[in-house]
Design a protein around this nucleic acid. Structure first.
Length: 589
DNA sequence: GCCGTTTTCGGCCCGACTGTTTTCAGTCG
């Protein structure tokens, strides 16, 4: 059982306990443990196998350690099954609906025998929900609407799609008279690879006017709620956007609060308490002068210390400002306190792109155009890495065409001496792990990427062997889009990534983070692992046309979320250093 | 269920809104 599965079981356990009405702190212990497992770069299975002490991990005590070990060894959790005999596990899906929490789910089950979402929809249509005490006609309609929306739309959208929705909306809101600031917060601002809904924050002299304008935005499908300081709309795409208008003196505190993550906020608040202060979305307040409990319930109680800017809020907690990409409670607060926050890689650090295609295979731009565009971005080098012959649908190159392509590269190189064009190839990894090109040709290339475009569903052990064999080929320099996933289309391949990453380290092979928004592959948790191991990461766009070279920020953002610095990134190397690396000189961070 | 320079008990983040209520529980972020 892998880490995401273990985390999901622990979360399910927490939810069922909540429905059962267990001690809320016990419930939270399960949520915390799930968070830790999710953030762990080492597979729990390996730790358990090795007999490592899991209780050194945050939020994992004796009990959790035993549960995790049980999940790893048996694939199930006796406690969860017992609980499942008492409470239907499918109620977890009912609780996932907005507006339905554990208490309501329990009553729906106990009083109407509702065990899952299907039964809930039937009961709502029959008007049974509104007859329940504590529920009304309105709740019934909201439940039906929530079920309908979940049926029609994916729960989270890829980041790039949300960019397309958010950018015009933010521009529109910024033009409303009286508006002083507008910023999107939430997981969108943290640049998570998928986003569930958009939280927009604003400062405005006339909040009512802004809220009205928000509801009148052309792409709004329905205005769900509208109050004096906040409103919720559903866009035509089914995507939910929340707007909150905050006082200017609370802007920074509100931005921290709504940017999250929730776990990061909780840590910040604990820290505030340790310093005799209280942190809320309104600001940081010094409560040391207050009598015990004197200001309870008053959001402005205590002395206002900070809140206008994020920097001031963090400073009040004796911390440097922490960039949103790191706010996931993965040790960033401790690192900030110790003044050990990394200087994360930025787009300007990149000196070139090591994964691109041309019209020679399935690209839309010529080598000449790609080189010119790369140079215009300020790059020192561009690797042209068209497909190998197996990918016939992509017009993959055999040796004969490849040699002709080299002649063209030489000609373009002569015309554009200011950018180095590397002769590369994205070679298919065949089913048995051998490469789709002869060794002599591979040896002549400047750079060889290997990747999987077929046999995605081999058993994990076979897949692991296959990739290890490919990475062990002496010509291999980069493992491109490692897990071969595509959002909404294809799940990641299954293999023992831990073993493969260790192999890459041993062989001096770099790992790609593919910046195509529908790929974003390797995922951040694995990038964290790559960083720990000291692997080099290549942020490649896989551009199939000149404009796709501009997708590189999506890759940089995920790299930043994984704490990568310039030193971890292969294509942040200047050309001379990269050339030595390609020659086989192992230069790590 | 976890955790501990106030450590083995007694804590555990904060505030607002909604819908259903006659003063608030439940839900959300």
């Amino acid at each position: 059982m892998d880490n995401p599965e273990i985390a999901s079981v622990l979360r399910r356990m927490g939810l069922l306990l909540q429905i059962q009405g267990a001690n809320p702190f016990r419930v939270r212990a399960y949520e915390n443990a799930a968070h830790t497992v999710d953030a762990a770069t080492e597979p729990m299975a390996k730790l358990v196998e090795r007999g490592a002490d899991l209780t050194v991990l945050d939020g994992i005590g004796k009990e959790m350690a035993a549960s995790i070990a049980e999940l790893v060894t048996s694939g199930s959790l006796a406690k969860l099954e017992e609980l499942g005999n008492e409470i239907p596990v499918s109620l977890v899906d009912v609780v996932a609906l907005p507006g339905v929490g554990p208490k309501k789910a329990r009553r729906l089950w106990e009083e109407l025998g509702i065990r899952d979402v299907t039964a809930l929809a039937e009961a709502a249509l029959a008007g049974e929900i509104s007859r329940l005490r504590g529920f009304g006609a309105r709740s019934e309609q909201q439940i039906l609407a929530a079920i309908e929306r979940r049926r029609k739309f994916a729960s989270r959208l890829p980041l790039a799609e949300v960019d397309r929705l958010a950018e015009p909306l933010l521009a529109y809101l910024r033009k409303v008279p009286g508006v002083r600031r507008v910023e999107a917060a939430g997981s969108y601002r943290r640049r998570r690879e998928t986003v569930g809904d958009l939280d927009v924050l604003a400062v405005a002299s006339k909040p009512e006017r802004l809220i009205r304008a928000f509801g009148e935005y052309s792409r709004v499908e329905s205005l769900e709620k509208a109050g004096n300081t906040r409103a919720t709309v559903i866009l035509q795409s089914g995507f939910q956007v929340d707007l909150r208008v905050v006082p200017a003196k609370s802007w920074g505190a509100a931005l921290v609060y709504f940017t999250g993550s929730k776990a990061h906020n909780i840590k910040l608040r604990q820290r505030a308490l340790e310093h005799g202060m209280r942190l809320s979305e309104y600001g940081v307040f010094d409560e040391s002068a207050l009598e015990e409990g004197a200001g309870d319930g008053d959001r402005w109680s205590g002395d206002y210390v900070a809140g206008k800017t994020e920097k001031a809020v963090y400073a009040a907690l004796e911390l440097p400002w922490i960039t949103p990409e790191l706010r996931e409670d993965r040790g960033e607060i401790d690192a900030a306190q110790a003044k050990k926050l990394p200087r994360l890689v930025a787009e300007k650090d990149l000196r070139g792109d090591l994964h691109s295609h041309s019209t020679w295979s399935d690209g839309k731009s010529s080598i000449e155009e790609m080189a010119r565009a790369a140079r215009a971005k300020g790059y020192e080098y561009l690797a042209v890495t068209d497909h190998s012959p197996l990918l016939a649908v992509a017009n993959g190159l055999d040796r004969h065409r490849l040699v002709r392509q080299w002649a063209e590269i030489d000609a373009v190189q002569a015309r554009q001496p200011e950018i180095r064009i590397l002769k590369g190839l994205e070679v298919d990894i065949l089913e048995d792990g051998s490469l789709d090109m002869d060794d002599e040709t591979l040896a002549e290339l400047d750079i060889v990427l290997v990747s999987i475009h077929s046999h995605f569903d081999l058993p994990a052990s076979a897949q692991t062997e296959r990739v290890i064999k490919a990475l062990s080929h002496p010509a291999t320099r980069i493992w491109a889009h490692p897990l071969a996933r595509r959002f909404g289309k294809r799940d990641e391949i299954r293999l023992d990534l831990d073993a493969v990453l260790h192999c890459a380290l041993e062989k001096g092979v770099a790992i790609e983070h593919n910046a195509l928004p529908q790929r974003l592959d390797l995922k951040e948790v694995h990038l964290l692992k790559a960083r720990e191991l000291g692997l080099m990461v290549s942020i490649g766009t896989d551009a199939h046309a000149v404009d796709q070279l501009d997708l590189v920020p999506y890759g940089v953002e995920q790299a930043r979320r994984a704490w990568l610095t310039r030193k971890n990134v292969l294509n942040a190397m200047p050309l001379a250093r990269l050339s030595r690396w390609l020659e086989g000189t192992r230069l790590g961070p």
